[in-house]
Write a protein that binds this DNA or RNA. Structure first.
Lengths: 236, 236
DNA sequence: ACCTGAACACCGTTCAAGT
DNA sequence: ACCTGAACACCGTTCAAGT
């Protein structure tokens, strides 16, 4: 097709650009949507590219690799975290637990984030602010510097590990009935072990398989961690 | 080639079988060797098959899928764990920490196992025995049944998460210089944050980036967990 | 029953070529 | 500077066909 003489060579504003330009932002948007809707394994460079109507190679102009993309996804999720209130020395343990509850809330709301976060310390602004607030709570609780510093490593490690475990189970798309069935099966398995070699396992078969559905397990963990940290508080 | 008349049709013992038959055992052996030598990502059905001089499809006669193979690898590694001594109520916390040290020792000696174990409760005999012994230690420490039951879930969760993090870092094949460099860089990064919004992070920049090389971090975690559990012990 | 080759439906990443 | 098609070197799993 030849050019009409009255058609400007390069129009100031092309009537309708065929495609929005690719940006980091749009890539993370698409990846996040894929992850929340279909889980971590659905987030591949190829699927993201497909959603954005391009080829996988195009993404590499904006993100270094898959690992950097994971980081960006973790940062994006961290932005959803509500920061803890200002520290109160009287109830720092409860405030610490609240912060951990907020962390797992966001991870549960964004399945796959836990998987992306594991072994990926989030360094986005919101994550840093969360760390800062937790440090403030710990120092309000008179936890020594080194202990507080290690605690802000331990805390997300625990929360992430729990969320990751849950993600794995949810990925199996189990119905509540499946869960009940699995729980009874496990408890039956423990009960039939040779009682002479496994006396405690047999005796505790029921408690060992309870609370798998709710978040009593998570509550137990954060209680243990908070109490353990409390034991390190400076006296006087 | 035609059959010699004095050659028995089916010899009682073939002189040298061209190939050893495939077994679960041999598959796990090969997978374990690959994992220890080259890390978790090197353990693919295809690479295992290659080592065993066959095709990937052949493995499926002996293992259901990759996930089952991961389970078998975890069980195999668990066999290397030395079980804790008989519980002593006087020093149950130290014994509990020793058990956790033994768990991470085996995971460190078998890089990749942590990755295979995450979200995969090991149910092999040795792993069950480890659980049993830890329950015995916890009950010696007068931990209530439900708390003890949840604790034997929390304990491997923590150890596995730490080992997994380490694996990720080791996979990057960092030299000690790289680690030092990274540590100083991180600490510089924390120090230059706006001090009005990140006062604690700035103040604790050094402790927050220390102990990344040794296992002080792990020791801190097991101390917190042991102390936290101790706070749940029944009184009287 | 076990093993095989070949195929199916995927991956992350690189690179030369285009605009 | 950004985007693209095509390729490279991989994955787990299935299946019909062989022994």
């Amino acid at each position: 097709m030849t050019q009409s003489p009255w058609q400007p060579i390069s129009p100031a504003k092309p009537a309708r650009p065929v495609k929005e330009p690719l940006t980091r932002e749009r890539i993370v948007d698409a990846a996040m949507r894929l992850m929340v809707e279909q889980g971590y394994d659905a987030v591949s460079m190829r699927k993201i590219a497909q959603v954005l109507d391009t080829g996988p190679a195009s993404l590499y102009a904006h993100v270094a690799n898959k690992s950097e993309l994971d980081q960006l996804l973790v940062d994006r999720a961290a932005e959803q975290m509500k920061l803890p209130e200002t520290p109160d020395p009287e109830r720092w343990q409860e405030q610490l637990k609240d912060a951990m509850r907020e962390m797992i809330r966001v991870m549960r709301a964004n399945p796959g984030v836990a998987r992306a976060a594991i072994g990926n310390v989030p360094l986005g602004e919101q994550a840093l602010l969360m760390t800062e607030r937790i440090l403030a709570i710990l120092k309000a609780g008179r936890i020594p510097d080194q202990a507080a510093a290690w605690a802000v490593d331990l805390i997300p490690l625990y929360v992430t590990a729990v969320a990751f475990e849950e993600t794995v189970q949810n990925a199996a798309a189990w119905t509540p009935e499946d869960v009940t069935h699995f729980t009874t099966q496990m408890s039956e398995f423990f009960k039939q072990l040779p009682v002479d070699r496994f006396p405690f396992t047999v005796a505790l078969a029921v408690p060992m398989t309870s609370g798998a559905d709710g978040d009593e397990r998570f509550e137990f963990g954060i209680t243990v961690i908070a109490a353990g940290l409390a034991s390190l508080a400076e006296k006087d």
